Amino acid sequence: MLVKPLTAGVGVAVIACVVLVPAHAEAAVNPVAAVKRLMAQARTAKVIEWGTVMLGGRGRTVNNMASLFDYHFERKGWLKLGRSGVAASNLTRHVMFKRPGTLAIAKQDAAGGDLQAKSLLAQTSIHRSAGVNGRLYTAGKLYAPALPKGKTWAYRGKTFSGGAFTDQIINIFEPKTLQRLLSDTYEKKFIAGPAFNDPTGRVHKDVYLYRGKLTFSDLYAVSPTFQALAQTEPDESYGPALVWWDLSTDKSGTPLRFSISWNTHYQGYYSSRERAEGSTITDFIGWRSNLPIKPPHSSTVAAVSGPAGGLPEFDDVAEVIRGRRPRS
């Protein structure tokens, strides 16, 4: 559960029976050591990832009612760990418009030629991605029209961290990044008894909860994954803005849930039109051994320069943030 409220529309489990962690119990739990152990064992995690993004400047009045513009997303699949972190992924993803009026806004913008709206509408159909051996492959409506006949997968070039990080911008499977987070937590708790239900309905009990925050600039300084996502060092338009995070682990320190909430607004630099905010919850449903992730067969793959029709990809948070900077 995030200490900062998530954007409307994202469910947050209620945490009950919170007690402070005894010093001896807290010392026994080491999430960094647990993550290193999972990496050394090359374990594969089943994940469900979900959240929302709000784009300032796109809201308007629909049927005499003022409406913000946001979209929801869901990703499901597998992350394969290796000694260097996330080595591969196999995921599905799709966008949803849950707030009343937002689908109508997207369609209206798309009809007017807005490429970002067209890209989001295309993403309401399920897309698949596979990141293997440092290469990223995608299948879905954004790319299918650009593929030669008989090809179903678009090769999108080299990728990082198994192609697993788009909506989730913090990679806790970078031990140095995780250590940086845990070194600056503002709250640590042990939740005795039921803590939260994951998307499968399973109740997680006796959970350790860590909460913290850092700026986009701080994240860029420590995380190779975010460096690759951001492409360039965050400038003054969003570098000082905050990312809040929550990590829930079991008694061994193994991650159960990792949540973030971010907002490009910060004191002294704010533009409501270009403002963006969002949240992502990543649930680790289970861990498997000896579960390989393979790339699509070469006979089904063709290289493409980008989405069909010149559309922007607009399928990760870093793209959203870069695209929402105040215009000069």
Score class of each variant (00 low, 15 high):
34 A>K: 05
35 V>P: 02
35 V>L: 05
36 K>D: 07
37 R>D: 07
38 L>C: 09
38 L>P: 03
39 M>E: 11
40 A>H: 09
41 Q>P: 01
41 Q>D: 12
41 Q>G: 08
43 R>Q: 12
44 T>K: 02
46 K>E: 15
46 K>D: 07
46 K>G: 04
48 I>L: 13
48 I>A: 11
48 I>W: 10
49 E>Y: 01
50 W>G: 10
52 T>A: 14
53 V>E: 12
53 V>C: 09
54 M>I: 11
55 L>I: 11
55 L>M: 08
56 G>K: 05
57 G>L: 06
57 G>P: 02
57 G>Y: 07
58 R>E: 10
59 G>C: 10
59 G>P: 06
61 T>M: 11
63 N>Y: 08
64 N>T: 12
65 M>G: 05
65 M>T: 15
66 A>H: 10
66 A>E: 13
66 A>L: 12
67 S>W: 00
68 L>H: 13
69 F>H: 05
70 D>I: 08
71 Y>G: 00
71 Y>K: 01
74 E>T: 12
75 R>P: 00
75 R>M: 07
76 K>Q: 15
78 W>S: 09
79 L>F: 12
79 L>S: 04
82 G>T: 06
83 R>M: 09
83 R>S: 13
83 R>P: 13
83 R>T: 15
85 G>P: 04
86 V>R: 03
87 A>E: 15
88 A>V: 09
88 A>Y: 05
88 A>F: 06
88 A>Q: 09
89 S>H: 03
89 S>I: 05
90 N>F: 02
